Computed example of a mutant assay.
Amino acid sequence: MADKTTLQYTAEHEWVQVADNEATIGITAYAAEKLGDVVFVELPAVGTEISGGTVVGEIESTKSVGELFAPFDGTITAINDAVVDSPELVNTDPFGEGWLVKVAFTALPTMLSYDEYSAIVGE
C-alpha cells in the first residue's frame, strides 16, 4: 500500500505516485466509497497516448458510473489486469492492489498535496 501522505492528488479524486518519469494512478478511498461497490473497470490499452483532462477509462459501480480522467499528458505503460478481473480491489485496496494505470510522462502539472486534498474532501 502506498503511503497516501506522500502521494499527489487531483481534484477528480485520483492519486498519483511518481517514480522517475512514470506515474502510477488510482482513485482515492474517498472516490471509491462514493462510487459504492465497483463491479466493472475499463482501462485504456498499453501504448495509448493520453491528454490531460480527458476521459481515459470508466469505473462502474452498483450505484453509478465514474470516469477516470488523465491528470496529464503521457503514454500508458501498464494497466492493472487484476483490477479488470477483480474490480472490487478498487474498494478494498484503492492505494495498493487497486491501482489502475501507469503512465510515462515528460512533464507534470502542479497537483494537490495530501493535506490540500484532505481539506477538499473533509478527511
Rank of each mutant, 00 (worst) to 15 (best):
A2V: 02
D3A: 06
T5F: 08
A11C: 00
H13N: 11
H13I: 01
W15D: 02
V18E: 08
A19I: 05
D20V: 06
E22A: 09
E22F: 14
A23S: 14
T24P: 08
I27D: 04
T28L: 09
K34W: 00
K34S: 08
D37R: 13
V38E: 02
F40I: 05
F40N: 07
A45M: 11
G47R: 01
E49I: 10
S51E: 13
G52K: 01
T54Q: 12
E58S: 10
E58P: 00
E60R: 04
S61Y: 13
S64C: 13
V65H: 07
V65S: 07
E67Q: 11
E67R: 04
P71D: 08
F72K: 01
I76M: 10
A78Y: 04
A78N: 15
I79V: 15
D81L: 10
V83G: 07
P87Q: 15
E88T: 15
L89Q: 06
N91Q: 14
T92Q: 10
F95V: 01
G98E: 04
W99F: 11
K102F: 03
V103W: 00
F105W: 09
F105V: 04
P109Y: 06
P109M: 09
T110M: 03
L112D: 08
L112K: 06
S113V: 05
E116N: 10
V121G: 03
G122P: 12
